[in-house]
Design a binder for these strands. Sequence first.
DNA 1: CGGACAACCTGGCGGC
DNA 2: TGCCGCCAGGTTGTCC
Length: 275
Amino acid sequence: MPELPEVETVVRGLREPLVGQTVLGMWYDWPRVIRTPDPDSFAARITGQTFRAVNRRAKYILCELDVDTLVVHLKMTGRLYVSDNDAISEADRWVHFSLQLKSGRQLRFSDARKFGFVALTPDPAALIARLGPEPLTDEFTPDVLRERLRRHRRAIKALLLDQAFLAGVGNIYADEALHRARIHPQRSAASLSDDEIARLYEGIRAALRSGIEHEGASVNWYRKADGTQGEAQRHFLVYDREGQPCLNCGTPIEKIRVAQRGTHYCPHCQPLASN
DNA sequence: CGGACAACCTGGCGGC
DNA sequence: TGCCGCCAGGTTGTCC
């Protein structure tokens, strides 16, 4: 579920309850959720370490401890939150991993679909080595985007979903960014004009910033670190709006399939003219 | 290079 | 109410 804005929101919400906390122990009930190392080694290594920082790279949550980094990926249905030891919430139904904190609270990882994972490593860079540029940083510029687009002929939406091309954008924000840029999702990447690339650059950043501003999109599974829903879904321009009027021109939003993913766009504002 | 598709899993929903 | 098929925001690997 979570894309860059959702993961960013979770990270921000975890800092206060997590940083400074020491790990007393570990629990799990689904071994495959622990990617590396093996569960016994994981428990032995993380016990006694203290959380020093919580950061994000693309859709990866990076919790820095004294020696290692706890890496968490939420994939589609993962949730990461801190609860009082005796507190029970809806998401606990799918908890598969937790850490006991010295504060008398627990860091819990819940994942209904079991696609997500936790990993403990002294070298998190290896796990995230193949990621493309981080779209909201200064190093990501229109020139960077243009140079990278030149190398590809794929549908632009497929490229936006490719984490090695650009890190952090997923299905929701790809649709939102393309609508803001007024570009059809099936346009060939190499066919985009300089003006279109400039619009795409702004569209990507604006869509992601809107998502962060509204604390993530709770279309279905996503929740903030405190368990409440985000509000970004109330500000979608096209995603999940099939058949509803385009907010710009009134034309009904269409849903098609691009790169095997549900894709929402306005056929009037995002024409497939020059390809 | 890239497109298609399976795999990893389960929940929710619409249709009958 | 029950069952069935379909869909789902992610990532990786394989095959062609």
